[in-house]
Amino acid sequence: MLKLLDISKKYGDATHKYPFEPYVVADNFRGKPAYKFDLCIGCAACGIACPSNAITVQFNEDQSKLVWEFDCGRCIFCGRCDEVCPTAAITLSNEFELAVKFDKNALIQRGELETQYCSKCNKPFSAKRLVHYGYECLSKANLGEKRLKEAENYLTVCPTCKKTATATSFTRGEEMVIE
């Protein structure tokens, strides 16, 4: 019994001063995901990886924008989005002071990206930035002038049209070219 009191005396005051002094978390702490809209290309990798579906990427009603939305209230701070993001648009920060009062909407972050329409069927299928990013990657990947030109065409065609084109050219026995 008294031994415990001795231990108390030995180690003294253990209380953290927080919130009167800032509390420092460990390096690489998994805090709130920070979204950098300027870097987001709308590839939806984070939305697919997110186990709790806190991140959604979908078209708005009139399909004029691709909306990226993150609900911090549902986030489980696993860092999958950070792991899969190709452009570091979403990274886990050290922030842990996340509480909000009365209005739950304060937990939401969103970004609207311009829609890319298919050059064949004119349906929306992706974000303009994703297409641009794809082109940038290809242009630095040691491709010839002609192949790059072809690739540029491919990039603006939606997956459905690509499938149709492949099937058509395959049945005709031609090499597939999309113009």
Binding site: P19, V100, K101, R110
Partner: peptide
Amino acid sequence: ASIIYGLTTALGVMEQRLEKVSFEEE
């Protein structure tokens, strides 16, 4: 620390940090 922050925020001791963020123009 988040829990203490949350409770002190609810009581008005600390300020709320987060607010809704929406980017609409690229």
